[in-house]
Each structure stands twice: as C-alpha cells, then as structure tokens.
C-alpha cells in the first residue's frame, strides 16, 4: 500500500516546490514514487492541491477521498476544505495562516471562525503552526514551503540526511542557505 501525502494551499504559496522536494527525497530513498501537480489557471490564487505517493509500487498518482496518510496544508481554510481526503487515523499539519479567498474579499462569503476546532471535532489529528514566522526567521517569507516540508519530514521514515540532500538539489543555489535553515526550523518543530 502506498503512503499518500496531499499538499494543499493557495496558488502562489509554493506548494509545487514542496511536492517536488518530497518526491525527490522519496526517490533518493529508493521508493516507487508518483507526484501529481496542477499547472495553469488554478495556480493563479486558486485552491491548489498536489499529491505525493510512495511505496513498493504506486498505480494512481492522485489521492482520493479518505485516502491521505498526511495532509500538509499551507493555509487554514484549505486544511478544512481538503479534510475529507484524510484517511481515518491520518495526520493533518497546517500552517495557521489565513488568506481570504475572493468571495470573502468581496463580501459574498464569510471566512469561517473556529476552523481548527471544527477539524479536531471531526476527529482529525491536527498540528497547527505558524510557519510564516519560522520562514521569516530563516530569512524569507517565501520559505514557508520548505518549513512545512521540514515539519512533514518527521512524519516519514526517511533519514534527515536524505532530506537535506533533496533541499540542496531542489532549491536555487542563491537561496540554499536560507532554505536549509527553513528546513531545520521545520524539522525541529516537527519533533514537538
């Protein structure tokens, strides 16, 4: 059975890089891997989801309702939106950031209160963290994705060295030091 990860967020938050990083680490660890991405229109500020699956053998590249072992959410409302994809007993890690979708900005809809409580009430194992502050501490608000990958890395059986190698291979050299720091901060948080 493949281990299934969903990475969800808002277009522009860097979810694609996160899925590539995780996929790369799994390949290094010798697993069969499939990663499914979404390009094009929904990348422009829409709700975006990418899937990473690994194991001895992976057939479908997508994760369906009730199948995700781990959901890594870059934004709180998106965590709630994609919760039905979490497997019973699965783990949900979410950035606590709020980004209003356009219907909320225009006043046509309301951003719900108490999202974390509602997710927990539905029986999900939720870890909520301020990944933006950790990213800023690492040197850039843009490093939120690598912080979150660091947190998620702790949920896997892949050694830290493999993860660090993937960060080195995946991010642009110019931002390597900052991203390594972001990964370390996330990795340390994931231990809590």
């Amino acid at each position: 059975m493949a281990y299934s990860i969903m990475i969800v967020g808002v277009g522009g938050q860097g979810t694609l890089l996160a899925s590539r990083l995780i996929g790369d680490a799994m390949v290094r660890a010798g697993r069969d891997v499939k990663v499914s991405e979404v390009h094009g229109m929904s990348q422009r500020g829409g709700s975006v989801v990418t899937y990473v699956k690994y194991g001895d053998r992976v057939d479908s590249p997508i994760v369906d309702l009730g199948e995700a072992d781990l959901i890594l959410s870059f934004e709180l409302l998106e965590a709630a939106r994609w919760l039905p994809y979490l497997k019973t007993g699965g783990k949900l890690i979410s950035n606590d950031r709020r980004i209003d979708p356009m219907p909320v900005i225009t006043g046509a809809a309301k951003y719900p209160d108490g999202i974390d409580a509602a997710i927990r009430a539905a029986g999900a194992d939720l870890t909520l963290l301020d990944a933006l502050s950790l990213a800023v501490a690492a040197g850039s608000a843009k490093a939120v994705n690598v912080v979150l990958v660091g947190v998620a890395a702790r949920q896997t059986d892949i050694p830290k060295e493999v993860w660090l190698e993937s960060v080195r291979e995946t991010v642009p050299p110019k931002f390597l030091e900052m991203n390594l720091k972001a990964f370390e901060l996330g990795y340390a948080y994931g231990d809590k």
Binding site: V10, G11, M41, S42, Q43, R44, G45, G46, S47, D59, S60, I62, D64, L65, G66, E67, L77, E78, A80, R81, L83, P84, Y85, L86, K87, T88, P101, M102, P103, V104, A109, K110, Y111, P112, I115, A118, I119, A121, A122, G123, A124
Partner: peptide
C-alpha cells in the same frame, strides 16, 4: 480510483467532513 471502486464494487473508503460552510477559492 474511489469513483471506479464505487461504481464497479459498490465500496468506498470512509471519510469525514468538518461542520463548516467553506467558501470557494476561485483563481484570481
């Protein structure tokens, strides 16, 4: 895969929903 399982075998995996009204997030 869940759609195919449901149609061919009538089975599907269980899942939960949060009790929230979740606004859509169209691209912008």
């Amino acid at each position: 895969q869940q759609m195919i399982k449901q149609v061919v075998t009538g089975e599907h995996s269980p899942y939960v929903k949060p009790g929230l009204d979740i606004p859509g997030r169209p691209p912008a």
